[in-house]
Amino acid sequence: MLKIKNLQANIEDKEILKGINLEINPGEVHAIMGPNGSGKSTLSSVIAGKEEYTMTGGEIMFEGEDLSELDPEERAHKGIFLSFQYPIEIPGVSVTNFMKASINAHRKAQGLEDMPAKDMLKMIRDKSELLEIDRKFLSRSLNQGFSGGEKKRNEIFQMAMLNPKLAILDETDSGLDIDALKVVANGVNKLRSEDNAVLLITHYQRLLDYIVPDFVHVMVDGKIVKSGTKELAYELEERGYDWVKQEKSV
C-alpha cells in the first residue's frame, strides 16, 4: 500500500529526514516511536503533503502511484488521512459543515454527486455515536474551545466519516486521559479492516496496549534505526531510547 524508499526531507534547508524506508501493507498496523525531535511528525506531514517540507530525495509510493507531486487534497482523495497532533481551531465553521464540505469534496473527486442531506445526517449520527460524541458538539465551531480530549476524539470522528485506506495518527494519545484514550482506541479498532492500514506515531507504549501494532519502528535522528514486533515497544518503555542509540553507534 505505502512504500517509502530512502526518503529525505528538509525544512528551510535543515535536514530532518535522512533516508527513511518503510513499507505498509493493507490490514497492518505500524507504530513509529522515538524521542522528541527525531522526525516522527515530519514524516507524517510529508506523507500528507505539507508544503513547508521539501522532499530532497527518495520516493513515496501509495498503491503504486508516486505521491510526491500531489497536493494534500489529492492525497486525501486517494485515501490518506492524517490525524493532527495539534488540530487547528477554525472559528466560524461548525464540525458538521466542515465534515459536509470534506465528504462532498471527496465525492466530487470520485465523480459523484453531493451526498443527500438525509444520508449525511444519518452518517454523522452513527459515527458520532461510535466515538461517544454529544450531538451539541457537532454544531460548535471546529476545535474552538475544545479540550485536548475532544480535539483528538473529533479527529478520529473525521477519520470514521472519511474511512481512509491509510490513517496516520500523529500522537493521538497525547493529552488524553485514560478514559478518552480507551474511547479513541476503541474507535480506531472498530475502523480497522483487511483493506486499510494504520500508522501510529507515539512516544509511549501506553497507546499500543489498546491499539496493538503488527510492527514497531524506532526512529532516531531522521532514520528508522530498529524495527521489530510489539515486544520492542515494551523493551523501549523499560530501557528508554538510549540503548537503541548506543546500539546504533556501535
Partner: peptide, 21 residues
C-alpha cells in the same frame, strides 16, 4: 493545510476560511 488534508481543494479551503472569518 488542515482543510486540504481533509480533501477540501485549495480554492474552496480559502473560501471556507474567509466565510468563517
Amino acid at each position: 493545510f488542515y482543510l486540504r488534508s481533509r480533501g477540501i481543494p485549495l480554492k474552496e479551503a480559502r473560501a471556507l476560511l474567509m466565510y468563517a472569518f
